[in-house]
Design a protein around this nucleic acid. Structure first.
Length: 596
RNA sequence: GGCCCCGUCGUCUAGCCUGGUCCAGGACACAUCCCUUUCACGGAUGUGACAUGGGUUCGAAUCCCAUCGGGGUCACCA
């Protein structure tokens, strides 16, 4: 069978999957799906570009694969991954056509054979300049405001090809350069149209590095041919590389795939979305805190973060952008660092379906309307795979608006049943605890408390579903849901501490109006004491009835008094759920305590 | 700086190819009001954009040109 729509996602394993990479992968996946993925003529494959020996790691490769799997962007061909998600294990990847391996570092023989062929045909040649020499030449060009290009003529040894090969074979350190053709190159792009690059723009770029590994340009071209890739969908930052690839394809006698370069994604302030944003955010927060608290504050930060002063000072001076340091500072200052990688969003409690949908709409839009005439914005992964076409990809860069993502996430959360929410929330809590020890991540202490409180055997107790009902409408992420769950995790001591910390709710809802709140509580207490069974429904009725008997327009005053008595705060989810979850014994004890 | 790409509300966008139905529609955010047992949810309303200047045309967000603005890229990284 001829595979007519083969796409690939080709990350280099130097860290986690970036949110922009996730969109690229999604589009590649969707394009293949749209053209009969799976059993049809469309295939989506994953290739790991680990030709940068120093920066690549197997751990990163695995992390990226897991991030993709979590998003449900499964590759038809590529490294195999056994992925377990809420109990179900699936195997992703494989090599049915025998085009692997999918790690470039394992394909060196293929690259070298092709490179030697080019050298023999006079289309590539060994070069012996040192990086220092080239760097010096580059500096001169930059100083003169000229475009630096590797100047074949100035080395004037090209004709000496036999001599070059001899030196190469004798083991002299060298790189191999591609003999750039002196002709204009047109890149056909399904998003941007034809992009013409004038003759002479290309220089003799390196195709094999001194360490013997091919450069990205060479490996990509080689592999796309070998793997039968027909469509290359990638970010626009690669557009300038494409002429090189087209030139190489011609020299090697390969087919040129169809290209589609998609617009870039930036932060709202227009800067690049990069890991360094985390350090920047932490640094700014630390500086603000120090300005506010005085120079001695650094000692407190050292104690609180368990970082030594030198590390902090270096960090402040922007001498390093350590993510670990940034995270410790963030935990200490109780700020959240910006999410950049898929794993960050996962840890923050976003849903893969929300991320996928949001990110898909950054640069792509099917232009569909809802029955009421409004624009359709919500799509499942499956629908994206059915609707995706290149002509609906835009050309303009976009900014990543977390507020809108949050809103999407809240919508997807709200769509779930209470049972589904409880289940997935529970899974998230346990994953989060497994990944980040609550002892070193203070933000996770509440998660640990929640899991402790609602665990039942090796799963969660039914009351977590009640909690889910209580917090779901006020949570935009799973982590948000933890925040609004605090009321259910409070100890008596926490409540007392709350009263001490903030007397206002007590004043307002218990003591004001001549002790109205306390008076109502005193009268309501016997009703609570006798109340049975202790269910949301019956408690709700009891509250309504009591309000009526007191000639109150609504149960507001008594509900507020209860809320404060039970939690020390004036803000919790609905009173019904609050009473139900805190439980009869604790409710009675705390009401009595307030009345005493 | 060279080369390349792009330019509709603050943000994501629909409309542009195939000019008129667009004094430009939706979503997020923001504001006001309603609902309400606090906080939310929900409902209603509002503020808000065709970068600028020239053409072409009876008519331009839509076609053409220029200007301005933004971005990408110029490695033995990918």
């Amino acid at each position: 069978m001829v595979l007519s729509h083969v796409t690939r996602f080709a990350p280099s394993p130097t860290g986690h999957l970036h949110i922009g990479g996730a969109r690229t992968a999604l589009f590649c996946w969707a394009f293949a799906k749209r053209h009969g993925g799976g059993g049809g003529s469309g295939k989506f494959l994953l290739r790991i570009e680990d030709t940068d020996a120093a920066r690549s790691s197997d751990e990163s490769a695995r992390g990226i694969m897991e991030d993709l799997a979590w998003l449900c962007i499964d590759w038809d061909e590529g490294p195999t991954l056994k992925y377990t998600d809420s109990g179900a294990t699936r195997t992703i990847g494989g090599d049915p056509r025998g085009v692997g391996p999918f790690f470039q570092a394992q394909r060196l023989a293929k690259y070298n054979a092709a490179i030697m062929r080019l050298v023999e045909q006079g289309k590539a040649y060994p070069a012996f300049e040192t990086s220092e020499e080239l760097e010096a030449a580059r500096k001169v060009a930059v100083a003169a405001k000229q475009t630096y290009r590797y100047d074949r003529a100035s080395y004037n040894k090209i004709s000496d090809i036999a001599e070059r090969i001899r030196r190469m074979q004798s083991g002299e350190p060298h790189v191999v350069r591609f003999f750039a053709p002196a002709e204009a190159i047109v890149v056909r792009d399904d998003v941007l149209g034809d992009v013409k690059i004038a003759a002479g723009e290309l220089d003799d770029f390196v195709i094999r590095k001194q360490d013997g590994l091919p450069t990205y340009h060479f490996a990509v071209v080689c592999d796309d041919e070998a793997m039968g890739v027909t469509h290359v969908l990638r970010a626009q930052e690669h557009l300038a590389n494409t002429p090189r690839h087209v030139a190489l394809q011609k020299a090697l006698g390969y087919r040129t795939p169809a290209y589609a370069h998609m617009p870039l994604i930036f932060n709202v302030d227009g800067t690049k979305m990069s890991k360094r944003d985390k350090a920047k955010t932490a640094r700014k927060a630390l500086k603000d805190a120090m300005a506010k608290n005085g120079p001695d504050y650094i000692a407190a930060v050292c104690a609180g973060t368990k970082l030594d002063e030198k590390t902090l000072k270096d960090f402040l001076a922007a001498e390093n952008d350590s993510i670990d340091t940034a995270q410790k500072i963030a935990a200490f200052l109780k700020i959240t660092l910006p999410e950049i990688e898929v794993a960050d969003f996962r840890s923050s409690g976003y849903l893969p379906e929300a991320i996928l949908c949001y990110v898909a709409l950054l640069g792509w839009n099917p232009g569909l309307k809802l029955p009421d005439g409004k624009d359709r914005e919500k799509f499942t992964l499956r629908e994206i795979g059915e609707l995706f076409t290149l002509d609906r990809i835009g050309k303009t860069n976009s900014k990543f608006d977390r507020a809108k993502l949050l809103s999407f996430n809240a919508d997807y959360l709200a769509q779930m049943t209470d049972e589904q929410f409880a289940q997935r929330w529970w899974n998230w809590c346990n994953e989060e605890l497994a990944a980040n020890d609550p002892a070193t991540t203070p933000a996770n202490a509440d998660i640990a408390a929640l899991v402790r409180t609602f665990r039942s055997g090796d799963t969660f107790s039914p009351s977590l579903v009640v909690l889910a009902r209580a917090v779901k409408p006020r949570a935009k992420t799973f982590r948000d849901a933890i925040k609004s769950s605090r009321f259910a995790l409070l100890t008596d001591a926490d409540v007392a501490a709350q009263f001490a910390a903030d007397p206002a709710p007590r004043e307002k809802n218990l003591l004001a109006n001549n002790l109205q709140g306390l008076t109502l509580l005193r009268e309501f207490l016997p009703i609570l004491e006798q109340h049975t069974p202790w269910t949301g429904e019956t408690l709700h009725a009891a509250l309504e009835q009591f309000a009526k008997s007191k000639n109150l327009a609504n149960p507001g005053p008594i509900a507020q008094a209860l809320r404060v008595a039970l939690t020390g705060t004036g803000v919790t989810p609905g009173m019904t759920e609050t009473l139900e979850l805190i439980g009869r014994d604790t409710v009675l004890r705390r009401v009595r305590a307030v009345l005493a």
